[in-house]
Design a protein around this nucleic acid. Structure first.
Lengths: 205, 205
DNA sequence: TGCGGTAGATTGACTAGTCAATCAATCGCC
DNA sequence: GGCGATTGATTGACTAGTCAATCTACCGCA
């Protein structure tokens, strides 16, 4: 009777993943025990191993799920007939909006994977590099069109771009900089504006 | 007889620190056991605990030792009567030269502390931020002098600058980009050139 | 409608191993 | 002879992953 919602196995699996996001975000990957995930999900310890091969597999699934969205968005932006600068802005906005929309998941991905070069970062290097690569290609195209200066190595810009954005996300994650909607918008603009036009004034002082 | 060099306690302590650099650089902090450090130093397990309170204390000493050099160099650059751009270039060069001179130690510091927001990064936040802060102040001064555009938040530039440089170091550490002397010099120039002048050409195409 | 039967979901106690830190014993220089 | 340096076996805490047992939902059949 009543509206007791039936939980399917898929729901449980999802519940485990969602619990893992919360726990990883809160304690970090290394100091969360599998038992913490199970408790948070309201599920028995063993069930985690029914759905996932290992604690690592849980993390991997969280990362891949979200990173592939970024990759798809980057690719589709790259294909569009818009100015290079719009493409870069689109990527920056996508990342920042991902954070705005789901800060815990993005925290986990940035802190535990993307910037954790010794653990998951190493495992997922190919996918991570694919994201840098789209930025490099946008810059290289811009150079070919004569928009961008040729002395600057596009691969270098790819790393630079992600390094800078991820540092900003870290700043929000750890409360070093205010995390308001206004700041998010401002940051997305500022990243691209600084990258394209530089710090210096173009007119004389 | 012969020239057997007498090893003082201070030498042993140093040997442990140096061994720790090599082992941390090679396996990462989390997967090195204290026994690995002792073995690498050619010293008994317990001696590590004679000189250091804990494994963490070893890491902390390595970080502090080197980071304070960066902080000193930044401060002294900041005080000098040279253009803002030279100051920024000086900091970039200092970091990159530190890597060139002692890649293993810098690898450990960047990977295990500076970018490890969940472990040592959290512990050493204040010192890390002090480094960002010098960059912010240089930019703020530049704005006051009318050199730099005012729409761009100096704190933002501080994080951006370090985020980008550390990403480059990671690239070298993991062999994503070539690590030749020529590349090091080019990178130091390019970081500041891009930051100050931007990607876009100033003349028409 | 009711009844075995089965597959997969779910449970949590348990195992097996790791590793930081301690400590009592020895060494060797002054 | 005494004291700091040095040793490495031992301890104790912790946790990922296993597994055998139980439960539940659903199916075919009479």
């Amino acid at each position: 009777m009543a509206d007791r919602v039936k939980t399917t196995p898929a729901d449980k699996r999802r519940a485990i993943l969602d619990a893992a996001i919360r726990v990883f975000a809160h304690q970090g990957y290394h100091s969360t025990r599998v038992a913490d995930i199970a408790d948070e999900a309201g599920v028995a310890y063993g069930l985690v191993y029914h759905y996932f091969r290992s604690k690592e597999a849980v993390m991997t699934e969280l990362f891949t799920e979200r990173w592939s969205l970024l990759l798809d968005a980057s690719d589709s932006l790259y294909e569009q007939e818009i100015p290079a600068r719009e493409k870069l802005a689109g990527i920056a906005r996508f990342i920042i909006d991902s954070y705005r929309h789901d800060p815990e998941l993005m925290k986990v991905i940035i802190i535990e994977v993307t910037r954790a070069a010794n653990s998951f970062g190493a495992t997922h290097l190919p996918e991570i590099r694919r994201a840098y690569d789209v930025v490099s290609r946008i810059v290289a195209d811009g150079q070919r069109e004569g928009l961008y200066r040729e002395e600057i190595d596009p691969d270098f810009v790819g790393m630079w771009f992600y390094g800078a954005i991820e540092q900003l996300l870290s700043g929000w994650v750890f409360g070093l900089i205010p995390a308001t909607d206004e700041e998010f918008d401002r940051a997305a603009t500022m990243v691209v504006e600084t990258l394209c036009c530089g710090l210096e004034r173009r007119d004389g002082p």
